[in-house]
Design a protein around this nucleic acid. Structure first.
Lengths: 207, 207
DNA sequence: CAATATTTAGTACAATTGTACTAAAAAATA
DNA sequence: TATTTTTTAGTACAATTGTACTAAATATTG
């Protein structure tokens, strides 16, 4: 990819993360990297083209993570969580304006809707595997793990937003808290065997 | 309160819920209720004044709910959840643009930040009571119920947003799912006694 | 070198926004 | 009724936005 085009993307990402999409105009981006708006527009005909490129960049990076998951199950599920969180932080602007973006961009909206379904299926597969390995207990409520997924997805997508609304800035500790929240969310569903492994992965969390 | 002023609020609420804050200008509101922008501005000097009034309206309504909670503990906790969800739905525009609002409005931002802390304390108090009544088990992980609160707060504030990003419209079933998610979130922490009561409250959820 | 394609800058424009301001109309008050 | 206050409409304005368009500069190619 063209060097200018690439720099437009990284500059936009930085500015979006810093000030939120709504407050970053094409002029803001152009001024920030000292090129003309005309030049910027030569590389991205529509403003939304920048957004979409960044979105699919993120999606692709996440997909690459998920595929590489293999060996020790519980540990690798936790590791994936960590990696996803890091990526989410890198593209945090996106999550902070998630609803607005989906409302204004049909392309991203539709893509995420189908992505969500795919992720749901993948999650339930992992759950099935965890049960098979005797790490997770059986369901005792209707669609218990489906709702667990839904909750995890909300937390995953909106935890950064939540932190901001609490009046804090996003930082390293935000990421750490995210990981604790996600892992603790899983904990009550683990079998004794699962809890034993959990203790090894997160010794600091134990009382 | 003045009739015109009141109608401005209800009209704004409807329009905000329908199209999102960003797409509702002062002219949109004025045109919709067939008054002049000048008149609108007479009642609300700043655009944000409308927003703030609606916000504090919601806060007050929620406060009234929480205070009236008394008797059968687990059931009333669930009942409160339902009522809050109904109010959130009524003012859903607010949650759908929560981060943007907090970024742009210092007054609301600061108020919510302190409200969050208050709610956290209240939640932990209720947890203590539930434990005392033998309905909730003791903590086994560090800050386990604090993180449970954090998760509940994220889900509570961003569930509607999440549904929209999944490509669905908000409806009655959205509210129902919210209630199931929130109650199932609590379930794994209940004692045998607590689970027994749970079964009475949500017989449909049992396998 | 000459010709062509790519990249850049600059200007212009139409649309929208929040808000300030003025004056008329309506309501309240004395 | 007279006058004072409240409410309403209308106009104007400055700022910002995304984007279209033109022409110059630069790089590439033959």
């Amino acid at each position: 990819m063209n060097a200018t085009k690439q720099k437009i993307l990284t500059t936009s990402l930085t500015l979006f993360n810093q000030h939120g999409i709504a407050k970053v105009s094409l002029r803001t981006i152009a001024d920030s990297m000292q090129i003309s708006v005309g030049n910027l527009q030569y590389h991205f005909k529509k403003r939304d083209a920048i957004l979409e490129t960044l979105y699919f960049e993120l999606v692709e990076k996440i997909d690459r993570i998920i595929i590489t998951a293999t060996d020790d199950l519980l540990a690798s599920v936790c590791a994936i969580t960590t990696e996803i969180c890091a990526l989410f932080f890198e593209y945090r602007f996106f999550l902070l304006d998630f609803t607005a973006i989906c409302r204004n961009n049909e392309k991203i909206k539709q893509h995420y809707a189908s992505l969500y379904k795919r992720r749901e299926a993948e999650f339930l597969q992992i759950v099935a595997m965890l049960i098979q390995h005797g790490l997770l207990r059986q369901e005792v409520l209707q669609h218990e793990f489906l709702y667990l997924f839904k909750r995890m997805e909300v937390i995953s997508n909106f935890w950064f937003s939540s932190v901001l609304t609490q009046g804090h800035e996003l930082s390293e500790s935000t990421i750490q808290e995210y990981e604790i929240m996600m892992s603790q969310n899983l904990y009550p569903y683990l079998t004794e065997k699962g809890k034993l492994q959990y203790r090894k992965i997160f010794p600091d969390q134990m009382l």
